[in-house]
């Protein structure tokens, strides 16, 4: 898994992360992360609070600066492959009081395709509506977003990413605080995406549903504890390593390093 890939192989790997380290404000968040994912899988990123799960996604998407490391999306850096990547941020990341309706938010997923300065035409609105139908939100298209329930807001975000028709989807805790209907809708969408050969990476925090949702896992606690097929890595031992036993010495060293060195390569 960690061998050297030739160019042809690399371009078939949806996400390849090599030696990724992220630290902000004296605080190490991710240390020497190394993994790659297989196409057409639903991959869960699990770990305790503060393990850097969201940061991992954000670092891949270039939203937080990385201290070092290399990230390739189908063999190229993220900037060149943006159209292949869909992102579902955490629900709390935006102000839901914003004066737009659900359809407007979903349309935002298409802004990149529409291009600079051009208005959102009927054609794109129809595409957005189609994405809303897929998550069962077509009836709410013209609701102001603050009037939607938490689960409905989450589905709007999901629809926005779907509208983009990407190859890889990154979802940051999509199951948090949602109702049963939304959870079901998301799971259906995940199956759908998988059957179309898309790759989905999901930050997740409830362990009960892990086996049911994910083909593969990235078990994370500042460093990678285990990666691989769920049935192989979702073991008591790995869980204990991820959630339990902190390696204080390692943490101390990482902290000292980021505090003193502060090297941004």
């Amino acid at each position: 898994m960690n061998g050297i890939h030739n160019v042809e192989n690399v371009s078939k790997i949806p996400v390849l992360v090599h030696d990724l380290t992220v630290a902000y404000q004296h605080k190490p968040v991710l240390w020497d992360i190394d993994f790659e994912v297989e196409e057409g899988q639903v991959i869960g990123i699990i770990g305790p609070n503060g393990a850097g799960k969201s940061t991992l996604i954000k670092a891949i998407l270039g939203l937080v600066p990385k201290t070092s490391g290399r990230i390739l999306i189908y063999g190229e850096i993220y900037k060149k492959q943006r159209s292949l990547v869909g992102y579902v941020p955490q629900r709390e990341s935006v102000d839901w009081d914003f004066p737009v309706n659900a359809l407007d938010v979903v349309s935002m997923g298409l802004y990149g395709k529409i291009g600079w300065c051009k208005p959102v035409t009927k054609h794109y609105k129809n595409l957005a509506m189609f994405a809303m139908e897929r998550v069962g939100m077509a009836d709410y298209a013209h609701r102001q977003i603050s009037q939607l329930s938490g689960g409905q807001q989450q589905r709007i975000f999901l629809a926005r990413a779907l509208a983009q028709d990407a190859q890889i989807y990154f979802m940051d805790e999509p199951f948090v605080g949602v109702d049963a209907a939304t959870e079901k809708a998301i799971v259906t969408i995940l199956h759908d995406l998988k059957s179309k050969g898309k790759t989905v990476l999901i930050v997740h925090h409830t362990l009960q549903t892990v086996k049911q949702y994910f083909d593969s896992l990235i078990m994370l606690n500042m460093r990678i504890v285990a990666t691989g097929l769920t049935k192989n890595v979702f073991t008591q031992e790995n869980l204990h390593k991820t959630y339990g036993g902190r390696l204080t010495l390692l943490e101390e060293a990482v902290q000292a390093y980021t505090r003193e060195a502060r090297i941004h390569e």
Binding site: K58, L61, G62, L63, K79, R82, S83, V85, Y87, P89, S93, V94, D95, F98, V100, D104, V105, M108, G109, Y111, G112, R160
Partner: peptide, 15 residues
């Protein structure tokens, strides 16, 4: 509007 609503998302979309 996309910048005001969701800066991070706008960033991932290449704006």
């Amino acid at each position: 509007s996309i910048l005001c609503f969701d800066q991070d998302y706008a960033g991932t979309q290449g704006w």
